[in-house]
Design a protein around this nucleic acid. Structure first.
Length: 417
DNA sequence: TCTGGGGTCCTAGGACCC
DNA sequence: TCTGGGGTCCTAGGACCC
């Protein structure tokens, strides 16, 4: 048996945790650059605010109806997430942290009678100890547990906990479960399945042409079908090292000059390289891209290029130099650039690097000192001069809440009146 | 004027080997 | 004029997730 624990409107719930005045208002959380809507309270959903929609399109109307918008605050969300996961680890024999707001639990050793009660206990404990409301779905496979989670969240009769035990119950809900809502079936796959007259999860379960499923949806689709049939294909995944680290941002305004792009790229490399060192890895390949806005009618330009290091590295300064060389190659003047990004891949553990006769000593002492200083005095306290100081291109984040739990200077205040 | 960011997995097809 | 068969490895691009 698997359980899926999913935090309800996670970012919104985090914001409400430390700002009770937001608890009764329609609330939305915006993506980076205050561009899109990425989390909505129930009240905001009822006002018809679309998930993933462009903020500027709804801003006026939403505010007129008393809605409140906040910029995303990942320091806060990450920290609250870790607290939730710690609680879950104490409650279940095995856990897979699937995303910032979700975890799968493996339920060996529970009788089916105990399972529902146990699900309710999880919900209650997380709310009591952390203050975040969650939904719990329990079923024999991961895909079914995901489905149970959806049902627990949307069907009020369940009070946030749904256990799909018997095949009869599973099929009863599958019959009303649209195919596009199934975990792993996106827009494209749903269209293909609908062309075979498969409209619900139950239709998919009963579709007998497995050859066609494999052919159109590849191995992934076949596994989903098996999981619907109660055959578990997807186990609990252990935490694994990242295979790639990316840092990409849209600009707060159009960027034209090479100098500003260089600044932005230097900042992104700095960020990505820090993450790389945190997991004690080096990278062999640095990829980089710049592009104009696809939403604008002005002439478009987009380029993607790589640099392969002769020796795997995590040295920020060396990486910035190489990135700048690549950037010079792909930069063309006269365009209004909207976004740039850096991707580090072909990662390898620091202690597994193969050295050779001619390899120069890495500048590791300097980099280690930088990391230590930044850890103590805050991110980017000391950085390469190429990162610039003004950063006029920097993304917008106009309505950001405080980092209540990770920054002493921003800690929550309690006032006695 | 303003439309996010960070990931994973799978497959086809190219390049190469003997 | 005729030009095989069996294999591996790598990567770009597509699709999906939250």
């Amino acid at each position: 048996m698997f359980a899926l624990v999913d935090c309800n409107s996670f970012y919104v719930s985090c914001e409400r945790l430390f700002n009770p005045s937001l608890r009764t208002k329609p609330l939305i959380v915006l993506s980076n650059n205050d561009g899109c809507i990425i989390s909505r309270s129930t009240e905001a959903k009822e006002l018809g605010i679309p998930m993933g929609g462009a903020y500027f399109k709804v801003k006026k109307e939403f505010e007129a109806k008393g809605g409140v918008s906040v910029s995303s605050n990942y320091c806060l969300y990450q920290d609250v997430s870790q607290r939730v996961m710690r609680e879950l680890e104490a409650l279940a024999p095995q856990i897979e942290v699937y995303s910032i707001d979700e975890a799968f639990l493996c339920l060996k050793g529970f009788s089916s009678k105990e399972l529902l009660a146990w699900g309710k206990k999880i919900k209650k404990t997380i709310y009591q100890n952390i203050g975040i409301p969650v939904s719990v779905g329990i079923a024999p496979t991961k895909v079914l547990a995901k489905m149970a989670g959806q049902i627990a969240k949307n069907n009020h009769l369940f009070n946030g906990v749904c256990f799909l035990e018997s095949i009869v119950t599973q099929e009863k809900f599958m019959a009303d479960f649209p195919i596009e809502c199934l975990w792993g079936i996106g827009r494209k796959s749903a269209l293909k399945l609908r062309s075979f007259n498969i409209k619900t999860a139950l239709d998919f379960k009963n579709f007998s042409n497995t050859y066609l499923v494999q052919k159109t949806l590849t191995k992934t689709g076949r596994q989903i079908q098996d999981e619907l049939r109660g055959i578990s294909c997807l186990g609990l995944n252990a935490i694994q090292e990242r295979k790639a680290i990316t840092s990409t941002r849209s600009f707060g305004r159009g960027v034209y000059s090479l100098e500003e792009l260089q600044e932005a790229i230097a900042n992104y490399v700095t960020k990505a390289a820090e993450k790389l060192r945190q997991q004690q890895s080096c990278c062999k390949l640095l990829s980089l891209y710049i592009r104009t806005s696809p939403f604008q009618d002005t002439s478009q330009y987009s380029r993607y290029a790589h640099f392969e290091f002769p020796h795997p590295t995590n040295d920020t300064l060396k990486m910035i130099k190489c990135a700048h060389n690549v950037l010079k190659d792909i930069y063309r003047p006269g365009y209004k650039y909207q976004k740039a990004g850096v991707i580090l891949s072909h990662l390898i553990q620091e202690n597994q690097i193969q050295l050779d006769f001619f390899q120069q000593q890495e500048n590791s002492k300097l980099i280690k000192s930088l990391d230590r200083i930044n850890q103590q005095f805050g991110s980017l306290s000391i950085k390469s001069a190429s990162c610039g100081t003004e950063n006029k291109w920097r993304m917008k984040s106009e309505y950001k809440s405080k980092r209540y739990t990770t920054q002493w200077s921003e800690i929550a205040e309690v006032k006695c009146i």
